[in-house]
Design a protein around this nucleic acid. Structure first.
Lengths: 212, 212
DNA sequence: ATCTAAATATGTACTCGGTATATATTTTGC
DNA sequence: GCAAAATATATACCGAGTACATATTTAGAT
């Protein structure tokens, strides 16, 4: 997973990590919009151009691990139990992720600060929405692959869209509840309740298709 | 609706319209990213600051009528027939909007160029996503008002999220179909088919709540 | 070891969107 | 016609992102 063999890649990854780490600290401390790229470069002790070399956009330093989320979804659908429909597979995945304390589903003060940082920046909110849409696309492609259908099929995108909408609402509402109650267990329960409720709708909408 | 009484407001609206009109033409002709604010100001024969006075962000010149969409949704829910559930009211609204050739649901070459312009600009896509989320929020508030519930209720946001996800997928897929077939009637049928299918899921997910 | 070619880091100078601030111009209500 | 408010505009600035040129490091062959 980490540390490629050749020194070149290792060094490159190291500077990348260093920049992202420094940037994250500054963003969480002072807010995304109140940190300039020049400051990040100085704090990470690299040239300004090196920052843009690793991260084309400033936001990319914040959302540095979005590929992992896409891979998680792809894997879950690829390795699903043959007897379980894709939609149910994803519902079970949500439960598993909560149980495994997946990133931002552990409802800690760390995830709390993360959410507030996003909330205070239009740029970060925009990127979060883009990531959500990318996830919907990944799910659509993976769903189509599951049942050997064309991904461009309206059914497929409807299923993916409804799923991501459900997860997004569940995520936001659960974090809202956590902010109010400071009770991680309650937040997790709320997250899963919404996911389950959404799954009911998703199954109804997709009844008759191979997804349900 | 138009032309307020006082000259001041009339003139202000006139320059605003002039700027938006000129900007739209340039955006559709050359692509959003290939037009600078300076060019728009020059073409509209106003100062650069005047442009930013009317439109805080460049994108606002393109999506100039997004408030109308929000108002349409609010009105539909406010004036709904008492015997018809909110979710069904919105499904019927979608049918009515298609019938009335509402903006971008008429599937003309004009709407086609509009969609392609959005598609080619990350900035415009980001704004489109933000508008979608704002619409979801408007629907959530209006739904809650319908049944005298708190808008912060997870149910409410789930209903709104699923609805907008459905409409969004329907919109995008219908335009994709229009691009391929150039048949407006087929595109409209596809739009409504997805909306109807989504409504089934929405009703199932919201069974037991006053929304269904 | 050393030389070459490729990958990587970095400097300089630029474009463009957006803001802050000050000023001029127009409109309205008296 | 006058004072106050709204509007238009000029000037100067900031910060993200790009283009391009250059230096430095590493990999791989001789």
């Amino acid at each position: 997973m980490s540390a490629p063999s050749d020194r070149r890649s290792r060094k490159r990854l190291a500077t990348r990590r260093a920049i992202a780490h420094v940037a994250d600290r500054l963003f969480l401390e002072r807010g995304f919009e109140n940190v300039t790229v020049d400051e990040i470069a100085a704090a990470a002790d690299v040239g300004r151009m090196t920052v843009f070399n690793h991260f084309p956009r400033k936001e990319d330093m914040f959302f540095d691990r979005d590929e992992e989320g896409r891979e998680t979804l792809r894997e879950a659908l690829r390795q699903r139990d043959a007897g379980i429909a894709p939609i149910e597979t994803l519902r079970l995945l949500a439960h598993r992720l909560v149980e495994e304390q997946a990133p931002y589903l552990e409802f800690s003060s760390r995830s709390q600060v993360f959410m507030e940082t996003v909330e205070r920046s239009e740029t970060l909110k925009a990127r979060a929405r883009a990531i959500r849409d990318e996830l919907a696309h990944v799910v659509a492609v993976a769903l189509a692959e599951c049942v050997e259908r064309d991904a461009a099929d309206p059914d497929t995108y409807l299923a993916a869209g409804l799923l991501l909408a459900t997860w997004s609402v569940a995520f936001i509402q659960a974090h809202r509840i956590f902010r109010q109650t400071r009770d991680a267990e309650e937040a997790k329960a709320a997250f899963l309740a919404i996911v389950d409720q959404g799954a009911i709708g998703l199954k109804a909408a997709m009844a008759g298709t191979p997804y349900a």
